[in-house]
Structures are given as structure tokens and as C-alpha cells.
């Protein structure tokens, strides 16, 4: 019973090399392949001014492929939380002309974008490409708690326990989809949970 797709649902593109001299890539897991695919279209010397921050994830693959691009810097982080302080520092010291490329899971793209927005970047200037899991970050509109890695429809709020319809309505500021109580009008209704965002 997934809701129909709507305009606020983010649309991810395909990474493409942007003009400028400084390029920052943030990717997790399969997102590395979006970068290597893009590298074929990049002008020579493009990665001389590039930093790649990579979160390999449990399967721990694709690192060698990124090394082969010979970026000016390649930083490997175990999680987004561990990457966050470095990312904030990089953006604080950055100059106009820095271009941002985000690739991988929706949760990573959304959270990295959130940090960049706070640093004064405009979301339309960021390149994004979705790869890998479709799992969603969801904000419960009732208790405001964020539940990570939601794969079912409906889904339980990890904070208040309400059964939520995971809408396609998405907030960049919160980096989350909206969850709204699915049986508010009659709590005895209990629609089955189905795997919707594998």
C-alpha cells in the first residue's frame, strides 16, 4: 500500500563532473561505483583537486577502485557519525567553487546534504546519485523522533510506537521522510506490514 510518488520525493540523478577546481565526494558502499562511473566522463586532472570521503559499510568493497582514481585525498570512515566532525571542518574552511557530490544510500545523501545546507551551500548545486539500499530515514510527525533504516510499509515509530504510514513527502532540512499514524481514525485497524524499501 505504498503511497503514490509525489513531487517532494527527492529525485536523484547521475553524478556528472562540474566546473571548478575543488570537488568533494561523499559516498557509502555501492555509491563508490557512481564515482568510478563518473570518472570516465571527467576531464584529465579532475581528481587532482578532489577529496573522497568513503564509508565502505559491512561488505567493505570498492576501496581499491576509489584509490585508483588517485584523488588528492581519500578518507575512509566507519560511519557517517564518525565522518561528521571532519566534514563540518572541511566545509567551514571551504571557499566558493567547491562542488559537492553525494552518492549511495538515501540516508547518507540526505544527512550529508543537511550538513552542507547548514554550511551555506544550495541544494540545487549538489550532485546526487542513489545507489544501494532503499531504506528510509523517517520522522514521526507526532513525537518528532527519527527512525533509521525503515524498510516496511507501514512502519513502527522507534520512539512512540505508533504505526506510521511512510509517506513520500520528504524534508531536506530534516533529511527524512514523513511518517503519519495510519490508523488514527480507528485504532483497531491494523494493516499488515510489508517490505517496501529493501
Amino acid at each position: 500500500m505504498a503511497a503514490k510518488t509525489i513531487i517532494s520525493r527527492p529525485i536523484y540523478g547521475t553524478l556528472s563532473p562540474q566546473p571548478g577546481r575543488h570537488h568533494l565526494f561523499i559516498a557509502d558502499a555501492e555509491g563508490a561505483l557512481a564515482i568510478t562511473d563518473m570518472a570516465g566522463k571527467a576531464p584529465s586532472g579532475f581528481f587532482d583537486g578532489a577529496e573522497i570521503d568513503f564509508i565502505p559499510g559491512p561488505e567493505n568493497r570498492h576501496l581499491a577502485a576509489l584509490e585508483a582514481l588517485k584523488p588528492a585525498q581519500l578518507h575512509v570512515a566507519p560511519s557517517f557519525a564518525s565522518l561528521l566532525p571532519r566534514l563540518k571542518q572541511t566545509l567551514t574552511n571551504a571557499h566558493m567553487g567547491l562542488r559537492l557530490y553525494l552518492a549511495g544510500t538515501e540516508g547518507l545523501i540526505g544527512q550529508a546534504m543537511q550538513v552542507a545546507l547548514e554550511a551555506g551551500m544550495d541544494h540545487t548545486s549538489m550532485q546526487t546519485e542513489h545507489r544501494g539500499s532503499l531504506a528510509r530515514r523517517m520522522q514521526c510527525v507526532h513525537c518528532k523522533g527519527i527512525t533509521e533504516n525503515v524498510t516496511t510499509q507501514p512502519a513502527l515509530c522507534a520512539h512512540c510506537g505508533l504505526l506510521l504510514l511512510v509517506r513520500d513527502h520528504y524534508s531536506r532540512r530534516l533529511a527524512a521522510f514523513q511518517g503519519v499514524c495510519i490508523n488514527a481514525e480507528d485504532r483497531s485497524e491494523n494493516p499488515p506490514m510489508e517490505e517496501a524499501f529493501p
Binding site: Q18, P19, R21, M96, D122, S125
Partner: peptide, 10 residues
């Protein structure tokens, strides 16, 4: 500005 990577929105 475009060549140096300034997004058009800015």
C-alpha cells in the same frame, strides 16, 4: 564565476 564552480543560484 561559472568556470570557477560558482553555482548559478549564487
Amino acid at each position: 564565476a561559472a568556470a570557477l564552480g560558482w553555482p548559478s543560484e549564487t
